[in-house]
């Protein structure tokens, strides 16, 4: 049965009328038009659908919308402050760390969560934190470079 569900998305309370078992991914994309969050695999393997729930990287393709109630959802659309990009977004641009760009939203959100927890990760720590993301353009080296660059921005 359809229910009224309240979500806090990118700092704003949003109300959706939906069945509870729908995936958060579909509610974000179809009901809230936040299409920056992507479908990639439907089994939590690739990270294209990743958002932050209370700051924690979370895969939305295997998460019922009800599980996000009462939590702060941050999608890629909510990362920049107005026109001012997040340092990770800037670093991805400077490094040219995207080819088709379809995996980019999830990668940027994961990286921003990593840097919040560990502002100066080693390459090994970057690889370990990012290993749950798949890029089929296989642009991994520049993504590692971008995260390193974002960390350096934090250092200066």
């Amino acid at each position: 049965m359809s229910e009224t569900i309240r979500l806090v998305v990118n700092g704003t309370e949003r109300t959706v009328q939906t069945v509870e078992q729908r995936r958060l991914l579909d509610v974000l994309r179809e009901d809230l038009q936040l299409t920056g969050t992507k479908y990639g695999c439907g089994e939590g393997q690739c990270g294209a659908c990743l958002v932050l729930l209370d700051g924690k990287p979370t895969r939305t393709c295997i998460l019922p919308v009800s599980a996000a109630v009462g939590k702060e959802i941050t999608t890629i659309e909510g990362l920049a402050k107005g026109n001012e990009l997040d340092p990770v977004q800037e670093a991805f641009l400077e490094e040219g760390a995207m080819q088709c760009g379809y995996c980019t939203s999830g990668m940027i959100l994961s990286a921003s969560a990593l840097l919040k927890e560990n502002p100066h990760p080693s390459d090994e720590e970057i690889v370990s934190a990012m290993n749950g993301h798949i890029c089929r353009c296989n642009g991994y080296p520049k993504v590692v470079g971008a995260i390193r660059r974002a960390a350096e921005k934090g250092r200066s």
């Binding site: 994309r29 038009q33 299409t35 969050t37 992507k38 990009l85 977004q89 641009l93 995207m98």
Partner: peptide, 23 residues
């Protein structure tokens, strides 16, 4: 020269609409 992809900014902000994003 290494010109970046002209719509790169839309890729890092989630603004670019891929075919699966068209509404």
């Amino acid at each position: 020269q290494s010109l970046p992809r002209p719509n790169a900014r839309d890729l890092v902000t989630g603004a670019h609409q891929f075919p699966s994003d068209i509404r």
